[in-house]
Design a protein around this nucleic acid. Sequence first.
DNA 1: TCCAAACCCTTGGATGTCCTAGTATATTGC
DNA 2: GCAATATACTAGGACATCCAAGGGTTTGGA
Lengths: 168, 168
Amino acid sequence: MGNPLPRDPIADAQRNWERHGWGDVAAPMAAITAIMRTQQILLARIEGVLKPFGLTFARYELLALLSFARSRALPMNKASALLQVHPTSVTNAVDRLQDAGLVVRSPHPTDGRTTLIELTTEGRTLAKRATAALNTEVFGQSGFASQDVDQLIRILGRFRQNAGDFGD
Amino acid sequence: MGNPLPRDPIADAQRNWERHGWGDVAAPMAAITAIMRTQQILLARIEGVLKPFGLTFARYELLALLSFARSRALPMNKASALLQVHPTSVTNAVDRLQDAGLVVRSPHPTDGRTTLIELTTEGRTLAKRATAALNTEVFGQSGFASQDVDQLIRILGRFRQNAGDFGD
DNA sequence: TCCAAACCCTTGGATGTCCTAGTATATTGC
DNA sequence: GCAATATACTAGGACATCCAAGGGTTTGGA
């Protein structure tokens, strides 16, 4: 989508902030902007790897969640909570996965409000293959040094906890 | 969109990866997933602050870019490169900002292919006010410790450079 | 017991992102 | 000078996300 820029646009923005007298928030602004951009880069890599499988990242995440769940079937609201996305996003993903024959919906045995989702055999197979591809082509070549990975897990873990993602 | 989970879902995923024999990529997987989730949290905060101004993050970024540009008018392709988004995304944002009276399009004086975008007076004022709000309500309360901010800038800066974002 | 409040999922609408093509204008090479 | 190639923007389509609202089911208090 573009060639490398001559200079780091985020470092430029940080300098702009300092120049305007906002030096006290320039660094957090740069860090947050860098997170946004990094996410964009990583998402593009992930989607690129998943495309041959006919999957998007959103659909893969749901497939992976189901493949690791203890119980074979998961309520949609549970999936929404664990994936931390809006319930309508899960509805959307399940619609498409079901059209592709990778998951099936079934009614909850005792709660008429709840819908369960479950992997089909093809869904389980595809989840395995897609995970293997992501492991070798993205996670195995993340571009982060080992110590940096640890730092990221620590820093972002604390941030997410403070943001109310999880207790503990 | 949800209450805190009892446990960190990303730490759970990391354990799942290790349990399946993918221990060598479990940590990068967790780090990358944490980046995705952190971006989601930050974006929600930013959009929440910008909503009263009638802005989204995409539109704000364009407004901010224009307000810091040396030249009053910027070609659309330049904006696309600096914001690192697809040209059609800039077209989309400019359409809406123009409808809102915050920017105007004008033809390039010498290159008939190029369209310049320029802030209106209202656009410049709104950019200032929105920036002030983001500085106090988001960047000033990022939730990252000062040393962590430095770590993030360093780690993600190197990552972005290796990913080909910029030379230097 | 029974109705109001809470909960679950889905539909419809607004936005944003990207990709693919199409149109118009510039630049390059012969 | 003219054709071929490259560049700039935009239109249309596929997906994802969220919010608001609606319809069905369960729960809980009067």
